[in-house]
């Protein structure tokens, strides 16, 4: 018996929904190790900065290690993939654009306190995750972004004496748990 237009439309909807679910699951699987690694680095950075405030080099060194780690995870993932790598230049261009934006912002509106800088980067990450989640339909990533943003602001306004420790424990923990949450999909 031939299909009716209604059955055909239902089948197309089913295809579209399944593709969306599959693409999201793939994105979660790819993002999970990045979140876990950055959670550990984040915790070490802010914890280190709290206990050794005279050695800000710890922060820079760990950030650099994180960037290198992200490239390693990304290239290992590409190595497993059988598809040809595409648009690699976009990652590098995005990285340069973000660095340029932050530099320009700090020149125009220089932060007056260390805690402002400490709050700025988690908020930037929260914004990026929220946008990524919204635009790619990966809602779990958007949730992680919102949680990090809210926790950052909570600590900034209500837990100033322990702000760096708060960011280390709760911010880093949120990223690690977020990464594990994505892995469970």
């Amino acid at each position: 018996m031939p299909m009716s237009p209604t059955e055909a439309a239902d089948a197309l909807r089913e295809i579209s929904q399944t593709e969306q679910r599959s693409a999201s699951a793939y994105g979660y699987h790819q993002s999970s190790p990045h979140l876990i690694m950055w959670g550990v680095i984040w915790a070490a950075e802010y914890g280190g900065y709290y206990y050794y405030p005279r050695h800000p080099i710890i922060f820079s060194a760990l950030s650099l290690a994180g960037i290198v780690g992200s490239f390693v995870i990304g290239s290992r993932s590409k190595g497993k993939s059988k598809s040809k790598p595409e648009f690699q230049w976009r990652y590098a261009a995005t990285f340069v654009a973000v660095i340029a934006f932050i530099s320009a912002l700090f020149v125009i509106m220089p932060p007056t306190r260390g805690t402002q800088v400490a709050a700025f980067f988690p908020l930037l990450v929260a914004f990026a995750y929220t946008q990524l989640g919204i635009w790619t339909n990966m809602l779990r990533i958007a949730v992680v972004g919102v949680v990090i943003g809210v926790l950052t602001l909570l600590g900034y306004f209500y837990l100033q004496p322990y702000y760096l420790l708060w960011l280390a424990g709760v911010g880093g923990g949120a990223l690690i748990l977020g990464g594990l949450w994505l892995r469970s999909v």
Partner: peptide
């Protein structure tokens, strides 16, 4: 088929993940 098409071309998916998606 739809779940596999959403992946990058020729990229495989593990059976357990496909089971969850489908």
């Amino acid at each position: 088929m739809a779940a596999l098409k959403a992946l990058p071309p020729r990229d495989p998916i593990e059976f357990v993940r496909l089971k969850a998606v489908v």
